[in-house]
């Protein structure tokens, strides 16, 4: 029990991202409404973004901005004092990608709605079967 608890506490960021990811996956599989599925997809993507952001953390470090950088540029910068900014920068791109995916998905959902007059998947499938 102790070991399991420690495992959860030590790696809590992983547990959070996996939980979020599974919530998203569950919504994509089990929800009947297409917009809910799209929301699930977005949660899924956000979970990965959260995972990346959490990997940049260092204990006791601060944000990676060097104060008065041009005056003290000759001094050595200790990397351990600053969190790793690279995953955050990468995630800016990933956020843009996820927004674009969300936009395209919603636009397609509108197209689906125009055709079937509903966004409930079972009703759409019923209409397709009747054709």
């Amino acid at each position: 029990m102790e070991a399991v608890l420690n495992l959860i506490i030590e790696k809590y960021n992983y547990w959070i991202y996996i939980t979020l990811m599974m919530i998203g996956l569950y919504a994509m599989i089990a929800k009947n409404n297409l917009v809910k599925k799209i929301v699930g997809m977005n949660i899924f993507q956000t979970a990965v973004i959260l995972f990346y952001v959490s990997t940049g953390v260092k204990k006791g470090a601060t944000i990676p901005i060097i104060e008065h950088g041009h005056d003290v540029a000759h001094q050595a910068v200790r990397a351990a004092d600053y969190i790793n900014p690279l995953p955050h920068v990468l995630m800016l791109t990933a956020i843009v990608v996820s927004v674009a995916t969300l936009g395209v998905a919603l636009a397609i959902a509108i197209k689906v709605y125009h055709r079937y007059q509903t966004l409930e998947e079972d009703e759409i499938l019923e209409q397709i079967r009747e054709l």
């Binding site: 996956l25 997809m41 990608v97 395209v104 397609i108 959902a109 197209k111 689906v112 397709i128």
Partner: peptide
């Protein structure tokens, strides 16, 4: 992938729904 989803959704009939399913699985 995103341009692919949009291109596929240009089709008629079930294209939009199929494209949406592709969006879900492609994103995963």
């Amino acid at each position: 992938a995103i341009t692919g989803y949009a291109l596929i959704a240009l089709g008629k009939g079930r294209a939009a729904l199929s494209s949406l399913h592709y969006v879900f699985l492609g994103t995963i």
